[in-house]
Amino acid sequence: MAFGIPSSTRRLLYIRDLLYELVVRDIKLRYKRSLLGIGWSLLNPLTELLVYSFVFGRVIPQEIPNFVVFLFIGILSWNWFQAAIMAATNSIVGNRDLIKRPGFPSPVLPIISVASNFIHFIIALPILFVLMYIEGVPLTETALLIPLIIVLQFTFTLGVAYFVATFHVTFRDTEYLVGIFLRLLLFVSGIFFSVEGVREEIWLINANPILHIINAYRFGFMNTEIPLLGNAMMWTAIASIILLVFGYITFQRTSYRYIEEL
């Protein structure tokens, strides 16, 4: 009963199909039985834009050119990261029935969390272009960097995802800890105000890869000058790769335990 396809090729094809089916399942489920359906992918970042632009545009005005575009880039990137990490935390515990099937590759589960939230990022991207058009921000050749930045954010997010998923199997309050940690991170990632002013005083802010990733998107979309961006990107890339490798190894090592303990 062979399939006539070399087994390693088949395995790759299989992982691709599995990712496809499970990501589509995630997305379908999110919008089943909702009035607006896929519209929520657009409405969510738009309402956030409204709130933040009111608070940081009117109540505590920022001196940032094209603030709406600046803000929306931050919101999009941050939402992807946050939603992916929240979903990944529960990706093992919430999918026991899948983990307990012979041959099911459990490392795909955190990938699915990151990938399906990436789809929402993509869906909301046209709004950004509309905002850029309204604000008169032209796309320049720096936009060519954007796919690379997306790959970088994917790598970093997945690295974190493997760790939180592993940790949540042992400690079920990881979810709350992750929530608290994310809220903290939200304020030091330069989403609705620029943290450039304090970066030199508080060096720890520089250790936040999300800050650099969001800055890079802004460079890509708006061609704004950001000091030392190249350097920051290099370190972020190295850190992300190391994180992903370690995260994956930790995940793999403990995955036999999950199967037995879940």
Binding site: D17, E21, L22, R25, R101, P102
Partner: peptide
């Protein structure tokens, strides 16, 4: 034939569930 119907979701149709569960069980799409 263990944990039949892994990945089944009540909100999805039988058709959608066949594709998901079939792939989870080890078939290509």
């Amino acid at each position: 034939l263990l944990s039949l119907g892994a990945g089944f979701h009540p909100e999805l149709t039988g058709r959608e569930n066949i594709y998901i569960n079939g792939v989870i069980s080890g078939l290509l799409r």
